[in-house]
């Protein structure tokens, strides 16, 4: 009984700390970063650009520490939506399902105590659309975009176990030329590279609770595109807000679980309408909320293995679009420079 009361007190303290004025300011800043646009539109099936890899690599690294992250993501879509309603779409041009396999990597380096530089890129092994009424599929493959990022730790309080980090990055497509397979230029949805240059801004707030072996992480990301690509396409701006609640299973249950952390991610994604030759694409842009249970295993403090299952709990699509059904992400991270 006493234990339960202690736990309740701990959680009460967590909530009250989060609601206190100084933290609220940071939280509001992250939310503002993620919602600064008009809440309107969505987009056709595949999320453009590089898929994001979970929660492992979002903060700054210690000075002279190098972190290498490799991840693989499989994403599957097979449900059409009209607004927020699932619909049965059986016209001749209907896609029965679409999927992609993407392997990404990032290398981060702690340049200074508060500054980390990072480069990320990835390769689509396939970006496939299967057609319902044709015995046919179309497939794109290749490198996506490279992203060069600088992260700066604005605030860190070791005693209070919290930090606030911001970052800015530049997005460079690997190819400006649309991919052609068997003499046919692939549609924009399955082009491996967006062909758009752009920028990415991120903000991260982390608060740890030692007694509860828990961590709360609030993450905001804004991604835009500068130019029209060779197909006349410019992807809409994307705003992502994620709340990660993590619980380290140290000293719980058995020896086996001591290096395991369980994480629940709640993510909101908002994508503005795409532009085709400066005209808005009617059925593009979306508002989606995803849930992503995640399990992390840490080995010797330098290796981190992570498995995420990501699925939508709410979708809103403009007009009729094929919506994402689920994705699975496996990542491996290795830190270098600790002398281990």
């Amino acid at each position: 009984m006493r234990k339960i009361q202690d736990k309740l007190k701990t959680y009460q303290r967590i909530v009250s700390e989060l609601l206190s004025k100084k933290y609220s300011l940071i939280i509001i800043l992250i939310i503002v970063l993620s919602f600064t646009s008009k809440m309107d539109y969505a987009q056709c099936f595949a999320s453009p650009g590089n898929p994001i890899a979970g929660s492992v690599n979002v903060g700054v690294l210690q000075n002279r520490i190098t972190r290498v992250l490799v991840f693989h993501k499989f994403s599957f879509s097979n449900q059409y939506f009209e607004g927020s309603n699932k619909i049965s779409y059986d016209f001749p041009a209907a896609i029965s399902n679409a999927n992609f396999n993407y392997t990404g990597f990032s290398v981060g380096y702690g340049l200074r105590k508060k500054i980390t530089i990072e480069v990320e890129a990835g390769y689509f092994f396939n970006k496939t659309q299967n057609y319902r009424n044709f015995d046919y599929l179309i497939k794109g493959y290749g490198f996506s975009n490279a992203v060069f990022t600088g992260k700066f730790n604005l605030y860190k309080n070791v005693d209070k176990m919290m930090e606030f980090t911001v970052s800015a990055g530049a997005k460079v497509p690997f190819s400006l030329k649309p991919q052609v397979v068997d003499g046919v230029t692939l549609p924009i949805d399955i082009q491996p590279s967006t062909g758009n240059f752009g920028s990415i801004f991120q903000a991260l707030f982390v608060k740890e609770f030692k007694n509860a072996s828990a961590r709360i992480l609030l993450f905001g990301r804004y991604e835009n595109n500068f130019n029209e690509n060779k197909m006349g396409y410019r992807f809409g701006d994307a705003y992502t807000t994620s709340l990660f609640l993590s619980k380290h299973l140290a000293n719980r249950y058995t020896e086996l679980t001591k290096d395991i952390t369980v994480i629940l991610q709640i993510r909101h994604e908002y994508r503005q309408r795409n532009l085709l030759y400066d005209n808005p694409v009617v059925a593009s842009g979306s508002n989606s909320i995803y849930l992503g249970p995640q399990i992390n295993y840490n080995l010797n403090m330098v290796w981190n293995f992570s498995l995420i299952y990501d699925f939508p709990i709410y979708h809103y699509y403009n007009d009729i679009q094929l919506g994402n059904s689920y994705s699975i992400l496996l990542s491996i991270t290795r830190d270098f420079g600790y002398g281990i």
Binding site: C44, A94, Y136, I320
Partner: peptide
């Protein structure tokens, strides 16, 4: 002869001398 096809929108299925355009439901 080699045939090269492009569409300003939608997906083209097939190759060679004949292709089929499958516009996504969003297009007009």
């Amino acid at each position: 002869i080699v045939y090269n096809w492009t569409a300003s929108a939608g997906a083209l299925l097939g190759s060679g001398a004949e292709v089929t355009l499958t516009p996504s439901p969003c297009l007009s």
